[in-house]
Design a protein around this nucleic acid. Structure first.
Lengths: 151, 151
DNA sequence: TCCATATAGATGCAATTGCATCGACAGGGA
DNA sequence: TCCCTGTCGATGCAATTGCATCTATATGGA
């Protein structure tokens, strides 16, 4: 079996993609740290839980949404619980599981993180590309999703 | 001071950027692991050293090129040296420093990693976007680089 | 019912990472 | 020459991550 070779354009785009994304995330994490706020992963989870509403989410549902390993989610939730940002409720029809729900404190924390996170996105993306360009970028990136989707 | 709010387009593009890049890197790392090869960071360093040629590079030069923390580079180089992939040479005009040079074994390892890495790029990017689209993507991402460049 | 297998989530332990700091040398000014 | 400050690279230690596995419960078939 012969291995495929990437085109120069593919290599260049890949390099930019990986590099730029790392830079942007790092700058945002630094901004959060500088404000004494927790990392982006906390926001992601709080965001999903806020979207989910009162019903909350099962940890395994969170896993596919936030793209983290099972043990990462398990430990992250434990930390969030210690800080009172989420609460774990036993679930009636499955003795193994639990439902995780965001608390008022969690919503407040989410807002505080977003103040920094949102500003970072605005500065790093919104200020540099027009709405049209951002849409184009989003569309191109969408084609790279895994697994491929038909849209 | 009022914090800026990102546009919906900026948020969507950001989310895709971060998510897609993580997925692609993860899939590539998995492919390397499955072949018993070291992580991408090893490739990056070997690549830079190969480009640098016989003269090698100082560790601090490597740092800006590969976008890693100083201590990460220090430890990564130590591992590469143990595996015989690079060699450290004292540098005459600066008693603090050293020059790092890739070895024959290092070049060979670089080739082996590229066989997987390149195939992964071809599959994940080349197969999904045309050359024109890849150029477009690269150009848009270039505008997000930090610090902003004039091109 | 009983057992085999599968799934949910937690966790012990080793490896890695991040932070802070260190030791060594460089460079410049008094 | 002697400090003082800055840079290079390494490293001790604590925190985090990854891997493997564990416990507990669920589910389906004999």
């Amino acid at each position: 079996m012969t291995k495929k070779s990437p085109s120069p354009e593919a290599i260049a785009a890949w390099a930019r993609l990986v590099r730029v994304s790392r830079q942007l995330v790092e700058r945002t994490e630094d901004a959060l740290k500088a404000s004494g706020l927790p990392p982006l992963a906390w926001y992601d989870v709080l965001h999903e839980l806020a979207e989910a509403g009162e019903g909350g989410l099962r940890p395994f549902e969170l896993i596919d949404r936030v793209l983290l390993a099972q043990y990462s989610v398990s430990r992250l939730l434990a930390r969030l619980e210690v800080d009172g940002l989420v609460e774990k409720l036993p679930v009636s029809d499955d003795g193994r599981g639990q439902t995780v729900r965001i608390t008022a404190g969690g919503r407040e924390m989410r807002r505080r993180i977003w103040a920094i996170y949102g500003a970072s996105i605005a500065e790093l993306m919104g200020d540099r590309l027009s709405a049209k360009e951002l849409e184009m970028l989003g569309a191109l990136l969408g084609r790279l999703r895994d697994p491929p989707v038909s849209e």
